[in-house]
Amino acid sequence: MSALDHPAQTTIHGASEGLPPALAQSHTYAHHGGRPVRTEPRAVRIALILVALAFLGLFIGLPLVSVFYEALRRGWAAYVAAIIEPDALAAIRLTLIVAAISVTANLLFGLVASWAIAKFEFPGKSLLITLIDLPFSVSPVVAGLIYVLLFGSQGLFAAYLQAWDIKIIFALPGIVLATIFVTFPFVARELIPLMQEQGTSEEEAAISLGASGLSTFFRVTLPNVKWALLYGVLLCNARAMGEFGAVSVVSGHVRGLTNTMPLHIEILYNEYQFVASFAVASLLALLALVTLIAKTVLEHRLAEEDR
């Protein structure tokens, strides 16, 4: 046995020594002598880092700073006034309601879809996976138009909707539908690979130990994906609050009624009310920053779970 092991080990050793420099670089220092293994000269490294930082600063940092700068240019009083103005408050309230409904819907949908995809075999599974990705590849404007075509006054269900006096387009339901469409991949996309990797044996173990289906879900399945689920919800929420294109098509831009925050910002901007516009925009920017921090924390937790 040991005689057989030996040559195999030698080859493994030989292979690691023959690693291309790019791979070997992940170990910063060689085992002998303590000299750096990386091959790029110092100047190249510094140049690369500077290019990356300059790019980030120019395209992300600078705009972010200018949002807050513009918002606070006339001082705190103007900033607060722009936010507590009734139309702005209505937009904030609408955005929160839309996000609450669509995130909840996509949380449930994401759980159900990824559960089905990861734990069962059924015909049409690959089609379902493709369809989940659809909103990523369809322009949000097209998504909005689809709902206008379906539920609008000239739409497919127009007669039925009129008869029952149900208003979808240019009202809350339309905005929610469009937002759900645009954001539904986020939770499912996070959960599917994780659930597929975890397989079904823990659930089988739970059931064989006498747990019911529901108790298996809440005691085993859900705790196993909780960080990924939160991560998905976070991304989903950020997108739901920030969505512009699809919502713009179905909203009708009725001030104080069907304007979400992004729409409200656009209207203010078009009316040259820059301070007010940037003040509301700064709220969305803050949301982005909070999301970023929470995302970093969650990523850390996810990596820990993976250990």
Partner: peptide, 25 residues
């Protein structure tokens, strides 16, 4: 009592809770 090939231990529970699972449910 089923012992799975790759153990299928509940990864978010400690050893005690793993063993207690069948009694707790």
């Amino acid at each position: 009592g089923f012992v799975f090939q790759h153990y299928a231990l509940f990864r978010h529970m400690n050893v005690f809770e793993n063993v207690a699972f069948g009694l707790r449910v």
